[in-house]
Structures are given as C-alpha cells and as structure tokens.
Amino acid sequence: MSHAEQQNLQLIQELEIEMMADMYNRMTAACHKKCIAPVYNDSEIQKGEAVCIDRCVAKFLDIHERIGKKLGQLSMQDETLLKK
C-alpha cells in the first residue's frame, strides 16, 4: 500500500470514529429523554429505566443501520444514474 493510500485510510478511519462518537452522544441524549423521568428521589437507575435503556439503544442502532443501508442503496442508484 502506498503512503498516500495509507494516509487516506487513516483519515477515513478517524472520521468514522469521530462520527461514531457523535452518534453515541446523540443516542445518549435521545435515550435519556425517552427513559429517564425527571424525578430524582432515588439516584439509582430503576429497573424499568434499565429495561427502557436496553430497548432504546437496540432501537436506535436498528434505525441507524436501516438508514445506513438505505443511504447506501440511494447512493448506488445515483452512481448508476450518473454513469448512464
């Protein structure tokens, strides 16, 4: 692999990590909003909240993957359209 290619790969990897962190932050905010009631009598996470977090994360990641696939499809379509 050439030096330039290696640099490109590193650049892309860094970007992906950065975006993963961004996604994680968004998920944290979204699931907090959905699962944690603004009542702080007990500082522990309740059982219901814990279950909610589990499902929330699963759903968020599901949607992320789904949208990723769809975007991939659409960009493929665009490319084939451009080639025509």
């Binding site: 968004r26 959905k34 499902r55 992320h64």
Partner: peptide, 28 residues
C-alpha cells in the same frame, strides 16, 4: 464525506425521535 456522515447521524436522531413512540418491545 464528513458532511454526509453528519447528516446520516442527524437523520438517525431525528427519525428515532419522531418514529419511536413506545419502548415496550426491543424490536422495531
């Protein structure tokens, strides 16, 4: 590429907030 990924994340967040109403099941 960066803008694309950013938009992708924004879209996930927005569509999650708008489409997921109940969290009683794990699957969509």
């Amino acid at each position: 590429f960066k803008d694309f990924l950013q938009l992708y994340n924004e879209m996930t967040e927005m569509c999650f907030q708008r489409c997921v109403v109940n969290i009683h099941v794990r699957k969509l």
